[in-house]
Design a protein around this nucleic acid. Sequence first.
DNA 1: TACAGCAAACCGACTGGTCAGTCTGTTGAT
DNA 2: ATCAACAGACTGACCAGTCGGTTTGCTGTA
Lengths: 196, 196
Amino acid sequence: MDNPQNTRERILDSALNLFSRKGYHDTRMDEIVEESETSKGAIYFHFPSKERLFLALMDQFASLLERRIREAIEQEDEGMQRVRAALTACLDTFGKYRLPAKIMLVQAVGLGAIFEKKRLEVNDHFANLIRTYLDEAIKVGDISPVDTEIVSHAWMGAIYSVVIRWVYTGEPEPERILSTLLPLLLRSVSYDDSIA
Amino acid sequence: MDNPQNTRERILDSALNLFSRKGYHDTRMDEIVEESETSKGAIYFHFPSKERLFLALMDQFASLLERRIREAIEQEDEGMQRVRAALTACLDTFGKYRLPAKIMLVQAVGLGAIFEKKRLEVNDHFANLIRTYLDEAIKVGDISPVDTEIVSHAWMGAIYSVVIRWVYTGEPEPERILSTLLPLLLRSVSYDDSIA
DNA sequence: TACAGCAAACCGACTGGTCAGTCTGTTGAT
DNA sequence: ATCAACAGACTGACCAGTCGGTTTGCTGTA
């Protein structure tokens, strides 16, 4: 009927909707079949298992986030401006992709070992990305030395938590998040952002 | 054989161990039976369902955390010292109760609506507690005005994220967490903590 | 002190509904 | 004719919860 790429994407799309709304365990494969208007056969042709289907969604979003952050960093000069750009890109991407964000930050938590591994992997990856540029900022002299391992994880947590709240309640608006959270984070390492 | 309180606690204890290690869905009631050396009957005599058993663990820890934070706050003077005490108590309690912390911060996430409601409830509760005393600190003049709604949630997230990491990897040690995270959070609202 | 009566506390084999994954096809393009 | 891309009825493992039965401790009675 349609081309296979289309079917695969319809499946991913419906899975994204259902998983993000109802969570992994409360979403039945048959529901994904119904919503995507495909069939059990189609799903299991494109994905070997429910688990892998979910992981595919996680990967999809992780790649997107990674790409966006890297692009943002590349356009800035060395030092704290890069950290700032990374945080902005991160918040911006979460803001633009609400459903995948919820999958990543909420629905992927507390599932078994496989998902947890992937989640921690992605999480650590971004924390380390932030950490690298924080270290750079310290080297360059933009900020004074801090325990960047803890700072980077604390930052991720701060962002996640505010974003999660926004995902659920729609408040506060992304605009207000950005304008409050960013200065907050930068201040936490004694960086004055008043140049913006 | 034993008194009923004993059985109930053995069940809660085993459930805590298993849920925190394997998560809600990967823990079978029969495993709790085995580990607690009781029986299906005993469990369902004390708890109406698996769901309620898990919720009981959440409540248990939420009460403990609440009590500890309130006690810590009461022993301090108005203003930023109270905020400081609350954060310290929070980190301290998570540190002392690793398994319940994992239940609360990890395993309770992404389960259905009932658990999510409870989790957001508890989360918001503590965020609001922090917020109240942040507002007080602003009123008293310890710090200049900030968006306390976002700050309080960001703080909770920062704490959670670092604690979760510690729960999984055992690093960094609670000592280092406290001595890095606390100044970080306080600095984020421009409060100089050098009096400590 | 013995014992019946009774209920709370507990035991564990069993069940019934659920659902991921399978399998036997069908369709349509090359 | 062949095979990728589906369709959808079916299965069987899994597991929360049940239920008839047993034990334990307590209370009143003689």
